[in-house]
């Protein structure tokens, strides 16, 4: 075996990685295209604006540092979502995060989020009812399991298609669907209960 061939076999990934162009080489355009979506997902998941900003920045930093691992098998959006999900999982599973979540006042309350309800023309009464319903939906989403919540937010906030969610989360499509069924069942139950009481 020649020296060149030996070198190529020993470091098979180094030479193509050094030369192959990835979409992340133009990081500015990737950031401009995706940062608001990633931030929206992280904010909805965490309900802490500062932390969501930090993790958004970390998502793009990690995308840049691991750009050579991007093979183009999924879209850039899916790849970024996968990184964001990993960061979110790593962060929320630490004991420190759980402790501060218990005692923290930084997390935005569901009623505060519901204040962003767009109702430009409706009456005050209907706005209050809708706002109360929306707060209950946010509370229900908060109580979902971590995975159900992520899948739900990716579908109903980020409007990702189910195969994209399956790719980003690494779950089978059928599992993604069952998570969505359960999340929607919880929301429907709460939603119907509030409609009956109001």
């Amino acid at each position: 075996m020649s020296t060149d061939a030996l070198a190529t076999n020993l470091i098979p990934d180094m030479q193509p990685a050094a030369t192959a162009a990835t979409p992340f080489d133009d990081l500015d355009s990737v950031v401009a295209a995706h940062q608001k979506r990633i931030f929206r997902f992280l904010l909805s998941s965490l309900r802490e604006p500062d932390l969501a900003h930090t993790l958004t920045q970390e998502t793009f930093l990690r995308a840049w540092t691991t750009r050579n691992a991007f093979r183009g098998e999924c879209s850039v959006a899916t790849w970024l979502t996968r990184i964001a999900l990993n960061l979110l999982r790593d962060h929320t599973r630490t004991q420190r995060f759980r402790f501060w979540r218990r005692v923290s006042t930084f997390a935005v309350d569901a009623t505060e989020i519901a204040a962003f309800l767009p109702h430009p023309d409706s009456s005050l009464d209907s706005r209050l009812i809708a706002s109360e319903q929306m707060a209950l939906i946010w509370q229900t989403v908060t109580k979902l399991s971590e995975r159900q919540r992520s899948v739900f937010l990716l579908r109903f906030v980020d409007e990702m298609e189910l195969p994209e969610i399956a790719s980003a989360t690494g779950l089978p499509l059928s599992t993604v669907k069952s998570h969505l069924y359960r999340a929607l069942a919880a929301i429907r139950t709460r939603h119907n209960a509030t409609r009956e009481t109001l």
Binding site: L43, I113, F116, L117, M134, W138, V157, H191
Partner: peptide
């Protein structure tokens, strides 16, 4: 409800 939920999330973010 889900549409409004998305709207609040978008407006908030």
């Amino acid at each position: 409800s889900l549409t409004v939920f998305r709207s609040t999330a978008t407006a908030w973010s």
